[in-house]
Design a protein around this nucleic acid. Structure first.
Lengths: 215, 215
DNA sequence: TAATAATTGCCATGCACGTTGTATTGTAGC
DNA sequence: GCTACAATACAACGTGCATGGCAATTATTA
């Protein structure tokens, strides 16, 4: 009685894109439960697919996980780079444009991307039990790629004399830190649009001028 | 043959402080393996204690975990508040003293405190499977308490005219973000003392003056 | 040293889960 | 409709693990 009631709509048909369904379901379950807790049965159910089919597409739970984090990294990186490109193309009023960038950066947190960040937390916690090659590949496809992109944009702003030009990599890190929310989703409180704006504004001001009195 | 060879030195005696031994061992194992992966047997072995004794002191794996994170939060908070008190007492040269504070803040990362931060990552990842009360208690005993302490110190600096006085809570968050290392221990690379100094210096400069050209 | 409490070893139970084999069935293209 | 192949249902195996029960053993205390 535990098998047939978990899968609500299994029309039993639909060949072909099972693999994508599995990856999507696995993302959901891995992000929610973590690697060890996540059971293949739960993933299969979430994907609307038989357990056996999962093993038909992926040899291992481990390989499935690595595929999931790789795809997650790629998708998230695409999205974030899109945000970067969109907002750094037309910088005229530095502070105002950075604030708009920060809002766009911090806002998508509310929808589908929440899963990606939950997965990132799982990776951070489980890093000691994930093969180093997988971690490296993930880092390179995700965070590092985005950071390099942002650093390039910052370098361009420095060339235009709008920012200091020393160590654009670290400057990029600082910017991202200051416009991102702390507290990853405890108590499931979604910050309002106003709170995001306020946080981002404060972050951008700190990024540009710092907190010293005389600045 | 799996039971007797894991515990190397079990002199079989030594009543009394078993509870502390269990807590310490549990911290090690939980921090390394996470809640689900961590087995009671592994914890008992790490603590040099029989499996049965664990259940003699704690009813559940869950209760043991909550005790561990609570103690971890308390210890880490004490240590961090000590660092805050030590460095914010004698602020004369703001930038130089903040840099020294940041170095002291980021350096202990190398020893015993690594476990605490690994545990924090586990909590962040597993938050959805930990009772809300436990999360709240942990937050209050740990991060929130430290942040409030730091905010108080920042408020005092603002009163002395050294920092802007708007929203000291967020200012505290910004300071901590900027002097902390990103990348939680992938590839087990321990940053050198020089690297820490460089990162902290850049962070404090950004905290005080920002990255804008004209500042 | 006697009595009380804590610790241990060992066994046992029950469950959840990864993984595989196999026979069956649905689907796509001829 | 027939064939080749993917998907499924079902069952089964092995394992790891949380948890509990005793009885023997050791430490603490009076």
């Amino acid at each position: 009685m535990t098998r047939s009631d978990t899968a609500k709509s299994r029309p039993r048909g639909g060949l072909a894109d099972k693999r994508r369904a599995i990856l999507t379901g696995a993302l959901t379950v891995f992000a929610r439960d973590g690697y060890t807790r996540a059971s293949i049965d739960a993933i299969a159910a979430e994907a609307g697919v038989s357990t056996r089919t999962v093993y038909n597409h992926f040899t291992d739970k481990a390989e499935l996980f690595q595929s999931v984090i790789q795809e997650s990294a790629n998708r998230a990186a695409e999205a974030q780079i899109a945000v970067i490109d969109r907002h750094f193309h037309k910088i005229t009023d530095l502070e105002q444009d950075l604030i708009e960038f920060g809002i766009a950066w911090a806002t998508p947190m509310t929808a589908e991307h929440a899963k990606h960040f939950a997965l990132v937390r799982q990776i951070n916690a489980d890093a000691g039990h994930i093969p180093k090659e997988a971690i490296d590949a993930w880092q390179q496809a995700g965070p590092q790629r985005v950071r390099r992109e942002l650093a390039d944009r910052i370098r361009q702003l420095a060339d235009r004399g709008l920012l200091r030009g020393d160590d654009p990599e670290r400057t990029a890190i600082h910017l991202v830190l200051l416009v991102s929310d702390v507290e990853p989703s405890y108590s499931a409180i979604t910050p309002t649009e106003e709170e995001i704006t306020e946080m981002v504004t404060a972050g951008v001001r700190a990024f540009l001028h710092g907190h010293a009195r005389d600045s």
